Simulated scan of single mutants.
Amino acid sequence: MKKILVIHGPNLNFLGIREKGVYGEMSFNELNDYLLKTAEEMGISLEIFQSNCEGDLIDRLQQAYYDEVDGIIINPGAYTHYSYALRDAIASINIPTVEVHLSNIHKREEFRHTSVTAPVCIGQIAGFGAYSYILGMQALSKKLNIK
């Protein structure tokens, strides 16, 4: 069974509380339950990690290398736009990674239009709400040849 790690960045633990017009009504726990259920249906072993701290996210990415994780789905939150340290961590582990966003970052404030992490990912999915993560799982499944 292939192992996929979902990494949620800063403020995602406040889903269902913050800016519902942008991020939707689904709570963080509901999102994670949705992801776990979908992964099980797809025959994927899924681990979920969230932190508001850049260093914790980098530590978990590096640990994924040692844990022999097959693929990563990451929503770096605001770190998307300026964390070269996160970008370098993704690049260094050589694990297929998909960047996802609940909102369409290209339709929002100009500073959100640039991702420093996307160039080291196999792709970016944005604007489909919680389904962005499912699309990320499907993309990794294809990349990892999961039936």
Rank of each mutant, 00 (worst) to 15 (best):
N145Y: 05
E40Q: 13
E110F: 10
I122L: 13
V69M: 03
L61W: 02
I58E: 03
A126Q: 12
E99P: 04
H106Y: 13
C121E: 02
Y82K: 05
Y66R: 08
G123F: 02
Y23F: 15
Y84G: 12
A126W: 04
S51M: 11
K37P: 00
G129T: 04
G16T: 02
P96Y: 10
F28G: 08
R112T: 10
M42D: 08
K142Q: 13
F28M: 10
G127A: 11
I146W: 00
Y79T: 06
D70H: 06
Q63A: 15
L140C: 08
T114F: 14
I146A: 11
M1C: 07
T38P: 02
A85C: 10
T117K: 01
F28V: 05
Y131P: 00
G55S: 10
N104E: 03
N94Q: 12
L86G: 03
L5K: 05
G127I: 08
Y131T: 11
E99N: 11
S103Q: 08
P119H: 02
T97P: 03
N145I: 04
S45R: 10
N145Q: 12
N32S: 13
Q63R: 14
G55C: 03
L35F: 06
N29G: 06
D59E: 14
I122G: 10
I72P: 00
N29Y: 08
A91I: 02
T117N: 04
S103R: 01
G123R: 02
I146C: 12
Q124P: 00
D33T: 06
E68A: 10
L36D: 06
I4V: 14
A85Q: 05
E47N: 14
I146G: 05
A39V: 02
V120E: 15
E47P: 00
I134H: 01
E25I: 12
K142H: 12
F49T: 08
S103W: 05
D67V: 05
K147Y: 11
A39S: 08
I90W: 00
L5V: 03
I93G: 05
L46E: 08
V100R: 04
V100A: 12
R18W: 01
S92M: 04
I125L: 11
Q63M: 14
L61C: 03
E25V: 11
E25P: 00
R18P: 02
F28Q: 07
G129M: 07
I7M: 13
G16P: 01
L57P: 01
I48V: 15
T80N: 08
F128P: 00
A78N: 02
V6E: 07
L35D: 09
K37C: 09
I7T: 09
A78R: 00
Q138M: 15
N52P: 01
H106Q: 10
T97R: 02
F49C: 09
R18D: 12
L46G: 06
Q124D: 04
K147F: 10
Q62E: 15
G43K: 07
A139M: 14
S27T: 15
G21P: 00
G71I: 04
A91M: 07
S92N: 06
L31G: 12
L36V: 11
A78F: 06
F111V: 09
A118M: 06
G21S: 09
V22L: 11
